[in-house]
């Protein structure tokens, strides 16, 4: 088997995640889909690391994880705040800026 299959898998997961972001209204599920996309990207980075034979890809994947963790913290806090004030976690309901 060619390790490039990992990349195909990553592409597939990424696309599924992106579709999830666009299809789901629940903000938490949307967030999970984003995590899925990030993980797909991490898989690709790890595979690149193996492809090139150095550890830079893994370093970047590591940073991605850290940043994703920070993003999850802030994002979930925002979701909680919105839920508290609007009693809804639907992204479609957050249309305050719409004319």
């Amino acid at each position: 088997m060619n390790p490039v299959n990992y990349l195909f898998l990553a592409a597939l997961l990424f696309t599924i995640g992106a579709s999830g972001v666009l299809l789901r209204r629940n903000a938490i599920v949307v967030f999970m889909s984003i995590e899925l996309m990030l993980n797909a990207a991490n898989l690709a980075l790890v595979t690149f690391s193996r492809m090139h034979g150095n550890l830079d890809g893994q370093i970047i994947a590591f940073f991605t994880m850290v940043v994703a963790a920070a993003e999850v913290v802030v994002g979930l806090a925002i979701i909680v705040t919105i839920f508290r004030s609007r009693h809804s976690a639907s992204v479609d309901d957050a249309g305050l800026m719409k004319l």
Binding site: I28, N39, N42, V46, A61, M65, A68
Partner: peptide, 30 residues
């Protein structure tokens, strides 16, 4: 898969941080 690709550290971090901490946070908010 990370482990299989030689990224041992990341594999462990993935389980501990992601599956453990981040997903717990998700469930907590849920």
């Amino acid at each position: 898969f990370y482990l299989a690709n030689g990224a041992y550290f990341l594999g462990i971090v993935q389980i501990v941080v992601y599956t453990g901490a981040v997903m717990m946070l998700f469930l907590f908010v849920l």
